[in-house]
Every structure is written in structure tokens, then in C-alpha cells.
Amino acid sequence: MISAIGEVLLGKEHQVRLALACLLARGHLLIEDLPGMGKTTLAEALARSFGLGFKRVSFTSDLLPADLTGLNVFDPGAASFHFQPGPLFSQVLLADEINRASPRTQSALLEAMAAGRVSVDGVSHPLPQPFLVIATQNGLDQGGTSALPESQLDRFLMRLSLGYPPRQAERALLQGEGLRPDGLSGAFGPQDLLELQARCERQHCSAALLDYVLDLLDRSRSQPAQGHPLSPRAGLALVAAARAWSLLEGREHVIPDDVQAVLAAVCEHRMDGGQRGESDGKLSQRLQAGVDGLR
């Protein structure tokens, strides 16, 4: 399947793998890059390859929470209100340019992401399962953006940036060899995804591996000069993502290599406080170099 998505997203196998791991780990994905790098394509490809319902919301500065969650509409026939679900009620939601919306709308989305349900007028409406939010944001140096605070960044399991494709892949792209996402056949269904997610949680984490993760967390906390310290939620995210990665690698147990593979995606945005600068990935590299990986 990775190769299938890879055909859509030329030359980005590692990112596709990470995005898939994120999906398996029941996490949400934040993709940060310049416009036109294939963010939307990735999101759509992910959704289609599992046959998931896919909706897309382009965030603008005047988008309101009700535009996302839906609202109670008066039904004159029944003389009562009934709930009209918003675009949040889909299995994969692509929140385009999330950092252009107002903080109020951002937090409405992020609450839904954390709780897995939406409350409108005192009534809780469960969101469909699986539920994945892929948010994209443009670089903060671009106009008309309001940055996500650290607390909300923490809700995203991973942050990816796609980057420019390699020359060979770009040549293929220009030659029109890439597939359109709608060309992807649904070999898997949502049930398969749920099953994979459950299997993911059963991946074995040995004591030695947990020690490694704990050492990483300790290290980030004992060296405050090296970015923000990692929270316990970051530790959970790291283990969940590493589990998903090990599943993708076809192993039944997690090894430090899995942790290292997802470390930058899981931890960098928690450590740099959303200020992705020139030195993207440096903090997690330094963190990784500070802990014995041999075990």
C-alpha cells in the first residue's frame, strides 16, 4: 500500500510511511510546508487507500466553530430542532491552512480531536471511527497566520514537512507519471484499519525499550537549553508511533530504531514550540545523540 500511495506522492516514501504510522497509532497529523508541495494529495491518498470518508475544510479567518461541528436546525415539519452535522463528522478531515483560522475555531477542532466527540447545545455527538485529522499549515512567516499554541501542537501526534521532491521524482511528476488520488483502489476498508490499529496497540514494548524512551524523556527534561521538555503525552505519542512503525516494518516487537524513525516527527514540534526555523530536526537529533541507542 505504501508503494501505491508512493505512486501518487512521488519520491516521498518516508513521509508516506510516517503518515500511515500516524493513522495506525490513532494520532492526528500536522503537515507544515509551503503551498503546492502535495499536502492535500497526501491526505487524500491516505483517506482513499482505506476507503475512508474524506472531507476538506479550508480554514479562513472568519470560519466559526459551528461551521465545523454543525448546528441544531429548526425542523418546521417536526416542530423541533434536529442536529445537522458539520464537516467534522467524517473519517478523515483535512483542515487546510489551520493556522489561518481564529484561535477559537482552532481550539474547537482540537477539542474534537482530543475527545473524539462534539458537544452542541449540551448534547454529545460521537465522531465516526476511525477519526483522523490531517491539518496543514503554511510556514509561519507567511501572511495572515495565527500560530497554534504549544498546548494544541501537543495534540498532534506528528508533524511532517514534505519538502521538495528529488529531481528524478519531480521529472516523473512533470512527465505526468504520478497517479491521481482518486485512481487509488480501495484494497482495504475502514474495518481493516480498525483491526490494524488494534494490532498496533498489541506490539510488544520490552522493558529495555521503555527504558530507552524514558531516557529520552529524562534527557529532554534535564537539558532545558535544548528546547521545551517533553511531556508525558509526548512519551505516550512516541511509544504509540514507534509501535505503528514497527508494525509497518513487519516486526512484532519495537526496537530503538523504530523510536528513532519517528522521533523527529513526533517530538520536534513539541520541543521547538512551533517555531520551526532553519534548524528543523536539529533538536531531536541532538536528543537522540544524547541517549545510548544500543541498549
Binding site: 530504531d257 528513532q260 541507542g293 544500543l294
Partner: peptide
């Protein structure tokens, strides 16, 4: 091994 390197990589 380099700093933080895992066994398979080494």
C-alpha cells in the same frame, strides 16, 4: 558506534 546510534545501524 556514534552517539545515539542503534545496533542495526552500527
Amino acid at each position: 558506534p556514534d552517539a545515539g546510534e542503534t545496533l542495526p545501524v552500527f
